[in-house]
Simulated scan of single mutants.
Amino acid sequence: MNLIILLIVGGLIGWVASMIMRTDGQQGIILNVVVGIIGSLLAGFVVTPLIGGAPITSGGISVTTVLVSLLGSVVLLALINLFRRGSVR
């Protein structure tokens, strides 16, 4: 059940992050889900211990975990854009 929730929330977070970074037209649903999940995992392991919370992989979804996951996805998209185009946008 946690895997299904992670996929759904990761997809939504990846979609919102791609809209924030204006890359929504360039990538499809699969890349949105991948960026959302990888961004959530990276932010969950790096940022969450610093602010004192539970990562999204623990199954608890709160406002803090969603915001941290969104931040991680936006940063991941910025890095992808930096390597792909040479500018963050």
Rank of each mutant, 00 (worst) to 15 (best):
N2K: 10
N2T: 09
L3W: 12
I4W: 12
I5D: 07
L6H: 03
L6N: 08
I8P: 06
V9E: 04
V9C: 05
V9R: 02
I13S: 03
I13R: 02
G14C: 01
W15D: 04
V16W: 01
V16S: 05
A17I: 01
M19P: 03
I20L: 11
M21T: 13
R22V: 00
R22C: 00
R22H: 12
D24P: 00
D24E: 15
Q26H: 09
G28K: 11
G28W: 02
I29V: 15
I30W: 10
V33A: 06
V33N: 03
V34A: 14
V34T: 14
V35H: 04
V35A: 11
G36S: 12
I37D: 04
I38S: 14
I38E: 12
G39K: 05
S40P: 02
L42N: 03
F45R: 09
F45Y: 15
F45H: 10
V46K: 00
V46Y: 08
V46S: 13
V46E: 01
V47D: 07
L50C: 10
I51A: 00
I51E: 04
I51V: 15
G52M: 05
G52P: 01
G52S: 12
G53N: 09
G53P: 04
A54M: 10
A54H: 05
P55M: 07
I56M: 06
T57W: 07
T57I: 15
G59E: 07
G60W: 01
G60P: 00
G60V: 10
S62Y: 05
S62K: 10
T64A: 15
T64F: 06
T65N: 13
T65A: 15
T65D: 02
T65L: 03
V66D: 02
V66W: 09
V66I: 15
L70Y: 10
S73H: 09
V74T: 08
V74Q: 08
V74C: 12
V74S: 01
V75K: 06
V75E: 08
L76E: 12
L76S: 00
L76R: 09
L77K: 06
N81R: 13
N81F: 01
N81I: 03
L82I: 05
L82Y: 14
R84D: 06
G86I: 01
V88W: 10
R89Q: 11
